[in-house]
Every structure is written in structure tokens, then in C-alpha cells.
Amino acid sequence: MDFVFSSTISTACQDFNLSFIGQQDRNLTSPSPHNPPNFGLSYFTMSFGILSNLIGLAIVLASYARFHHRAKTPFLLLAAALLLSDLAGHLVTGALALHLHLGRVRRQRAASREPSEPPQAFCKLFGACMVFFGLTPLLLGSAMAVERCMGITQPLQHSAMATTAHVRLSVLLLITMAFTLAALPLLNIGTYEPQFPGTWCFLPVHGALSSADAGLALAFSSVGLSALTVSVLCNAVSGMTLLQARFNNQSAKLTASRRRRSSRSPVHSLDVEMMVQLVVITIVSSVCWSPFLIYISMSVRQFYRGETHSDPHYEQLLLLGLRMASWNQILDPWVYILLRRAVLRRVCSLLRPSRVILTQSNSCGSSERQEIHLH
């Protein structure tokens, strides 16, 4: 749900939805036509998210074309796929959300009292996009963590297995998995329904559910939480391995240490840079997505326990979780924009102005001293 839910751009619906929560009754009656929703912040959020993903994608592609380092190529391919999915989520789900909201505005201005729920076909398309663009970034993020863990802990196997063809095949398999789950309700296995306050569509997660609906919702949350768990575990193993290698290097003899740094420092520097980016991506995804995924899992388990009542507070909590998840796609690209070696090197020089010329052994240093003079 990177829901992205990014998508959701749903953030794009934030102002409109908030006005509805305070004014709507349980029949989703339209608010007063004299108080149309303000879309200024929504348009800004959508535009900012698209621009951020474009900048992040440009940086990743420029890095791939400029360095084309063997150790970094698989990571960059997965990062590009992640940012592309974020961008597509913003564009597709954002367009669907805005179409739905603009239809509500037209009904408000016409003082229409007709039901505001979207057509069934439209709701199915909207819901499928929400599921697909929600799961895809989470799965790609876990694939990035696995790739880095293998590259750091098993470099020889990584060189043999993490080829460009294998990475592309992995991306295709993950996308297929997300697409299959999203397409099942389109084949009448489960349903997509309008969600409170009638401005977005998703799998039903509370109330009287069918077995198919409960199974799909539980599968969605389980896949998402599993992807986050794999990312956290792999990042922990990779981080511990890098720390152990650093301590071993410090305790080695000076001559041997110099030889290792002269032959392996570029790869080690790349490992640290990619790990920092990946850890921040995992933290952002966990903070944004965990509330939404955990809430879905808890709601479905209540259904299995026989509790089928629908509380209005549950619907508002689901909407709040969705809005949190929608920020994941906006924040992801800024990891690549800000956490680059050039940016970190400049920050280090600002924090430590007395040591602008850094040696190769410095933790904030560069392997080429001339680059520091240029800053």
C-alpha cells in the first residue's frame, strides 16, 4: 500500500474527506453546496509527489549511467523499479481519486441529493489499483533488502546470481504476484467496495464479510507485513555484517589494512551508501504502512471471531491509516535525493569545517581528494 496508496493521493483527498467527516451523516449525504471542498492542498500534494518521484528517478538513472558499477547495478535496477511504481501509483490512483472527487463537487454545486457512491465498474478499477500499487513498492523494497544482504554477506554468490536478467525476472515475478491478488475481485473472487466517506474503494475489512473478502484482506495485510519483516531482518543482518567488518579492519595490522582499503574501499563505500538508503526506506515504509496493515489484520480477525458489527470509529481509523500510507510514495524518492555521497560529504564538510580535506580513511571521506576541493 505504499498506497501509495500513493495513491491515495488520497492525500489528494484529504481536505475533501475531512470536511465530509464533520458534515456527513451515515447515509453519506452530500455536504452543503455553499461549502465546496478546497482542493488546493490536494493538488499541491499530488504535484509534489509526482515531482519528487521524477527527481528521484532521474538521480537513480544518472547514477546507473555514470558509474555502472557491477556491485551497484542490481540495487539501482530495483530502486528504479520502486520509484517507477511510486510514480505510476501517484498518476493512476491520483487521477481516479480526483475524478471521483470532482464528480462530488459537481453534485454539490447542483445541490444534488443522489447517492454519491461510485459506479461498480469504476470502484473495481479503483480498488484494484489501490491493491496493486500498494503491494508492489513493499515487495520491491523487500527485494532490495534481500539483494543487499546477499551482496554484503555472500559476495561471491551475489556476483553469480544477481545478474541484470535475474533482477528483471525477480521484478516481473513480484509485479505478477501483486497483480494477481489485485485482479482476483475482478474475477468475482471477493469484491471491492466504497470506503468511508465514499471517496475511495478497497477490499472490505470490517462488518459482515464473505469468506473470499476476509481471505483477500488477510492476504493483503499478510503479504505487506511479511515484506516489511523481511526488509527489517535483512537490513539488520547486513548492518551487523558491515559493523563486524569495520571492527575487524581496525584491529588488523596497518599494512594489511592499507592493502584491503586500497583494493576494496570503493565497494565498501558503495555498500555503506546503499545500506543507509535502504535502512531509511525501510523505516519510512514501516512507519507509514504498519498502522494500515495491522488494522486490516485486526479487523479481519475480529470477523473470524464472530464480531461483525461496524463501528464508525473503525472506518475513520482505516481512513487515517490510508493517509499515513499515502505519504510513503512521497518520502521514498527523497531518500535518493538527500542520502547520496555527494550530499553527505557536503554535510560532513559543513559540520566539520576544520577538516574539509578528508583522507581516504575518514568516515566521511572520499577516495579522491580532488573531489573535496571542488566542494
Rank of each mutant, 00 (worst) to 15 (best):
A143E: 03
H99V: 15
S142K: 02
T93F: 03
F126G: 00
C129Q: 08
S159F: 13
R107N: 11
L87N: 10
A121R: 12
A111P: 00
C129F: 06
T73L: 01
E114R: 06
L139G: 04
F132C: 03
L91K: 06
H90G: 11
V105D: 12
E117R: 15
H99Y: 14
L83H: 10
A110G: 00
R107M: 05
S159N: 13
Q157F: 09
S85L: 04
V146N: 03
L76Y: 14
A145T: 04
K72A: 05
S142H: 02
K124Q: 15
R109L: 08
T73Q: 05
L77A: 04
L84R: 06
L87E: 06
A128S: 13
L135I: 03
I152R: 10
L91P: 14
M130W: 09
L138P: 00
P118L: 07
S85T: 09
D86V: 04
K124A: 13
T136G: 05
E114F: 00
G134F: 01
A128I: 01
A110P: 00
Q157C: 09
T73C: 04
T136A: 13
L78P: 02
C149T: 10
R106Y: 14
V92K: 03
A128L: 03
L156I: 06
C149Q: 08
R107I: 02
M130A: 15
Q154T: 10
A81V: 07
L135Y: 12
